[in-house]
């Protein structure tokens, strides 16, 4: 197992939300140029209460409530990052990143390249993703693939409290604009998180479960789905390996390909849309890198190609579940 996975052993358990908060607090203590900007981040600590307590420790100068002006405050963050600050922008729901796209895509992503490397934009945009919260089409999307498409941006999708803390600290210290996606449904997920400083480098995948017969490559909350499916598969005598790329870009292609070569069968799982999405990219990496070792075409599982419906029975079929993954894996293994 990779070293980073072993480090996840710790007596102390935190929720995913607490791990995020701890990473921010530690980075803000370490570096006075780090500050937080977003809607209802101060007294309210965000609607998900992820940031509770930060205002009390760091004050209004460093935890700033903004108007509902996503384009405006993201643009401000780009300029502040270029001139000596390290902003962490909070976009409450991932659906609202659409309002920031010009600032992120045409400005933040390109400043370093266009200036021939003379300016840089060390900022983080934290936002959410994930469906099944009964929040309908404008509050349930997983739009991370939009950013993956853009050279100059890094994209991070943590799946455990341990990774969330270490990856966020690495993102804040990175010299580039990093977009950090947190699945809303994972905020209460508990897991071991060491106290004190550590980082998880961007661009290193993690094997969350070792197996022999099939590889489940999964991102964000789909890692938990894959782990549950793997437990079911074990009962059917199928040994599944679960690999979490952790960052969509930079992408640790080697770890994914090695696992694919070992097991010869791969399912790629991600909560974004399948078409033109993350699963397509990862499947292509596997198909190219492990072509001669594959015993079956790479299977992709992502969000159904529909706006997320409100009605619970409809919403529930739009995303992969442990049951659908279990069945797809069995079929791929010919059992």
């Amino acid at each position: 197992m990779p070293e980073t996975h072993l480090q996840a052993q710790s007596d102390r358990e935190l929720t995913f939300a607490q791990a995020i908060r701890e990473a921010l607090a530690e980075e803000m203590r370490r570096d006075p140029t780090v500050f937080i900007l977003g809607e209802d981040v101060a007294e309210a600590g965000t609607p998900f209460k992820v940031l509770s307590g930060l205002l009390e420790e760091f004050g209004k100068e460093r935890v700033l409530d903004t108007p509902i002006s996503e384009a405006g405050f993201t643009g401000l963050a780009v300029g502040a990052a270029m001139t000596g600050m390290r902003p962490v922008v909070d976009i409450m729901f991932g659906d609202f990143v659409t309002l920031t796209m010009d600032q992120m895509v045409n400005q933040a992503a390109k400043v370093h390249y266009m200036s021939g490397g003379r300016w840089k934009v060390p900022m983080v945009m934290r936002t959410t993703m994930g469906a099944t919260r009964r929040s309908a089409a404008q509050h349930s999307q997983s739009l991370h693939a939009w950013f993956c498409h853009i050279p100059g941006l890094k994209v991070v999708l943590p799946s455990t409290p341990y990774d969330a803390k270490g990856l966020l600290k690495a993102a804040i210290r990175d010299e580039n604009p990093v977009v950090f996606f947190e699945d809303k449904m994972m905020y209460k997920l508990k897991g071991p998180v060491p106290a004190g400083d550590y980082t998880v480098p961007l661009g290193v995948a993690d094997i969350k479960r070792v197996g022999e017969d099939i590889t489940l490559i999964a991102t964000s909350s789909m890692v938990q789905v894959a782990l549950s499916a793997a437990a079911l598969l074990e009962e059917s005598g199928i040994s599944a390996e679960v690999v979490d790329p952790r960052t969509m870009w930079p992408l640790d292609e080697q770890t994914l390909i090695e696992s694919a070569k070992k097991t010869s069968r791969v399912i790629v799982l991600d909560e974004g849309y399948e078409r033109y999405g993350v699963t397509a990219e990862l499947a292509s990496v596997i198909a190219t890198g492990a072509f001669y070792d594959l015993d079956a075409p790479v299977k992709r599982m992502g969000a159904m190609h529909v706006p997320i419906p409100f009605s619970p029975p409809l919403e529930d079929v739009t995303v992969p579940t442990e049951r659908t993954v279990f069945e797809a894996a069995r079929a791929l293994c010919g059992r």
Binding site: R134, A137, L314
Partner: peptide, 14 residues
């Protein structure tokens, strides 16, 4: 989220 709703359950409250 019922079929008889104004948006056949696809929209919800908002």
């Amino acid at each position: 989220g019922k079929k008889a709703g104004y948006c056949k359950g696809k929209g919800g409250s908002m």
